[in-house]
Design a protein around this nucleic acid. Structure first.
Lengths: 112, 112
DNA sequence: GTCTCGCGCAACCGATGGTTGCGTGTGGCG
DNA sequence: CGCCACACGCAACCATCGGTTGCGCGAGAC
């Protein structure tokens, strides 16, 4: 119970745009504000703000390279985030054993 | 990739207060706006709004009982939510195999 | 029959995700 | 060498959202 989740980390990962940014950075290895905004339906400035919060919670770290700032995912911190996701899911599973089977069925279902 | 996550469901579960409300309702079987607000650091109206969004995405359903409205968790819908959490975590894990080991270590670590 | 409890509606406030607009420095290149 | 363009940061502004206070109302308890 009480789940003891780091709300900051969770809410950082909670935003759909930030999740897609993390996806892109993981796929490409790194990302800049403009490169990410090219592949997202938001402006560079919006991406820059998101990079700011991701950086503040430590999910990414930046390295200036020439006139651009390259951001890449901090693997360990992301691992902590995924651990928290799993933890919350597990806590709910524990409460309702029935859920577990349904969740697994859905999981298997949407496995691509 | 592209994760195809239902952003509405995710963001419904993304709010810390709503997560605690789900916890409480799971623990007690049901909850009303006032009963939940008694055990949370927010007002009844805030809780009522949250119950509204949870109801809108189908995570809870309400049954009027006398002068109070009892809300209880829709197990199947919550199972879908947890499945999505697991799905996103899995997608990130898949990208960085290194993460998996670290995540498991943390998971084991905070197992209570 | 009245009083109280639980609820819904409305106005308001601060934070946040998003936008546009502008100024600036660095790098490529004629 | 000098200039242009690109990537960035800063600032103002807007809508939405989580939260609050304040109100009125209807159903239950006494």
């Amino acid at each position: 119970m009480s789940v003891t989740v780091d709300d900051e980390l969770w809410s950082a990962v909670g935003d759909p745009t930030r999740r897609r940014m993390l996806d892109l950075m993981l796929a490409d290895g790194f990302g800049t504000a403009t490169s990410l905004s090219d592949r997202l339906p938001v402006t560079r400035q919006a991406v820059a703000k998101h990079l700011g919060v991701l950086h503040r919670v430590g999910l990414v770290h930046a390295t200036p390279s020439g006139r651009e700032r390259r951001y890449e995912v901090d693997e360990e911190q992301l691992a902590r985030a995924t651990a928290q996701l799993a933890s919350v899911g597990a806590s709910w599973d524990a409460r309702l054993h029935r859920i577990k089977r349904i969740a697994e069925a859905i999981q298997r279902d949407r496995e691509n």
